[in-house]
Design a protein around this nucleic acid. Sequence first.
DNA 1: TCATAATATTCCTTGACAGGTATATACTCA
DNA 2: TGAGTATATACCTGTCAAGGAATATTATGA
Lengths: 113, 113
Amino acid sequence: MIETLGALAEPTRLRIVEALGRRPRSVGEICDALSLGQPQASKHLRVLRETGVVEVEAKAQQRIYSLRAAPLRELNLWLERYRRIWDERMDRLDDVIEGMKEEENRDGRKKRK
Amino acid sequence: MIETLGALAEPTRLRIVEALGRRPRSVGEICDALSLGQPQASKHLRVLRETGVVEVEAKAQQRIYSLRAAPLRELNLWLERYRRIWDERMDRLDDVIEGMKEEENRDGRKKRK
DNA sequence: TCATAATATTCCTTGACAGGTATATACTCA
DNA sequence: TGAGTATATACCTGTCAAGGAATATTATGA
C-alpha cells in the first residue's frame, strides 16, 4: 500500500503507469512513447514490478508490461476511508466527476449547491 | 496530484494523515500519538501543508492540523480512470460511483483510444 | 516585562534513489 | 553457430530528503 504510493510518486513511473493504463506495452514501446532511455525504463519497470503495480509477460524476446488490479484496488479501498472528508458538502461523486470533466473555470467561482 | 502521492509515500507522513483522518490534532497530540519527535512532526507537517494535504488553524499557541478535501478528492478522481482495471469482475465495493461506466460493460476490447 | 509553553527552523550527517553510460543476458532466426 | 534484437543489470555520480540535536520564533499569562 505505501509501496504502491512510493512507486507512483515518481514522475516517470507515474507516466509509465498512465501509459500502461491505456494498454499493455513492451519496454520499447514505453521508451518510444515517453522518450525514455531503455535502461531507465527497465529500472522503473523493475520498481513497479517489485511493488506489484505491474506484471510482465514474455513474448518472444520482448517483455509486455501491464497494470495489475490489486494495488489500485487497495489504494481505492484506503482512500474510501476518507470519503467523508473528500466528499464533504459536495454533491454525489459522479456529479463531482461530471463537473470536473467539463473543466470549466476551476478557480473562478465556487459552485454552491 | 503527484505531490500528493509524494507526500503520502512516506511512512511517518502516512501515519500522520491517518491520525488526522480521525480528527484534527495539534502538533503535540501528533507527537504523542505517533511517538514522534516534535521537530520531525513539524517538518512532516510542513511538507503536508505545502502540498495542500493538510491545513492549519492557530489556536492560542497551538497549531491544529486537519486534512483538506481537495487532494484526496483529486487522488480519487485520478484513480477513477483505472476503475475498469481494479474493479475487474470483482464484487462491487461500492455502488455510489457507478454511474459512468455504462459503455464498458461489454466484452469489446479497446485497442486504440 | 519576563517566564514558559507550543511550535518552527537551522545545521549536520547519512542513506536512498534517479539519470547516464557501458555491459551483460536472453531470445530468435538465418 | 553467429548476428541481431530486446531487455536487464552494474557502476558511477549528483541530488534530495529524513532523522537528530540545538536553537529560534510566537503566543500566553502573571
